[in-house]
Design a protein around this nucleic acid. Sequence first.
DNA 1: TAGTGGTCTAGACCACCTC
DNA 2: AGGTGGTCTAGACCACTAA
Lengths: 242, 242
Amino acid sequence: MLPFDVDRSSPVPLYFQVAQQIEAAIDSGTLAPGDRLENEVALADRLGLSRPTMRQAIQSLVERGLLVRRRGVGTQVVQGRVRRPVRLSSLHDDLVRSGQHPTTTVLLHETGPAPAEVALTLGLAPGTDVVTLGRLRCVDDGPLAVLHNWLPADLLPADADLTHHGLYEVLRAQGVHLRVASQQISAEGADAETAGRLGLDPGAPVLVVERTCWDDSGRAVEFARHHYRADGYTVEMTLVDP
Amino acid sequence: MLPFDVDRSSPVPLYFQVAQQIEAAIDSGTLAPGDRLENEVALADRLGLSRPTMRQAIQSLVERGLLVRRRGVGTQVVQGRVRRPVRLSSLHDDLVRSGQHPTTTVLLHETGPAPAEVALTLGLAPGTDVVTLGRLRCVDDGPLAVLHNWLPADLLPADADLTHHGLYEVLRAQGVHLRVASQQISAEGADAETAGRLGLDPGAPVLVVERTCWDDSGRAVEFARHHYRADGYTVEMTLVDP
DNA sequence: TAGTGGTCTAGACCACCTC
DNA sequence: AGGTGGTCTAGACCACTAA
């Protein structure tokens, strides 16, 4: 009988409060892998919530792969540690969050007509002006990634300080709310220039991430092509079957 | 005013019927990128549904990145084509679905005590028996991937025909319902053996996918390490910010 | 048969955005 | 001020699982 409770005077939604408490119980081991949760109705009753609200709390954890549900059986904690992250976050923020100290060198920052591929991806008329950005991202150990980005020209202020701030941070400050990203991950042998930047031999394996982002109005905000040192970066993700 | 309607005698959930019709309208261009959807209440009224049911339909498309919602504003179709896939599916099924003809050579199929790393990942006691599987997956063009899998020994029948059926297909036939997968994607230079299998030079870039799967009871079903030819395979995913 | 999650209803109030 | 999505309620019936 876990000591869940909710604070109805809080601005935090009730379903979210409950989801956080269940997640905390899983993290702390109070709910062990394989454990069954109380059923939805009983939990709702005990917390003084309606069943739909209780369901929403559980559903949010199911969608993140922490819990599994079976009709007629119940809800259980997934065995083993699910890799949590891969949110729609920036590399810069991810590095800071993991305790590193990323530094950035701006290699290229210019405005001009969009290349055909970029215009197509961003849904812009051919020849529309875009900002082309090239950056080298380093961590304590040395170079980690070469980052290329293309954005509609009106989104990025000309005097943006990309040396000390991540791109997404700058965009947030502009009132851009990223909402959806579609990305494609592949491997390549580094070309001479990329290899030089990353301190690798030409042909050395690099991880390539191509990403297109849209904001909360559905507008394309960015196309990115990033080349990562293979020994310094992995992409993690969790899939849940509907 | 789109001609949506629902069939209340169908076993397909109402929210799913509606979601399918909205998605079809987006695919066909009837709902163009940037278009606003009717508001939730009006749509629910028009279709004779309650608002929560209508919301569930829209929500499912928002979570897949096809629609974006803003409070006080409305719901819009995302500009540009979101990459749809990355479900919890097998490589074999994905290849068949994309019109290719995968063939499989079983390199290794043996049972023995789990290596420490595998036992840890699957949450098994050290020394528990697991099936170790090595396969070479080819398509019309030639070799595509070297697949290594480790499964609890009781999950895979000894006489499973892995030459003509995908692993997940065999598991489904055993009554195993995969539900959650956690995977990590990286790049490597191919070692001599992998390079030989894939028809590459040693050190050539390969995409590495490590995946752990759980079924609908939360039990760990599989740990996989796959090496893909870099020129033949990419991983696609869509991220949506909550 | 008893218990579980899956779906659905008909309302309600609120926060936020645009005008 | 009016319209939008975000949250929440108190029920209901059904499909599926397990004993």
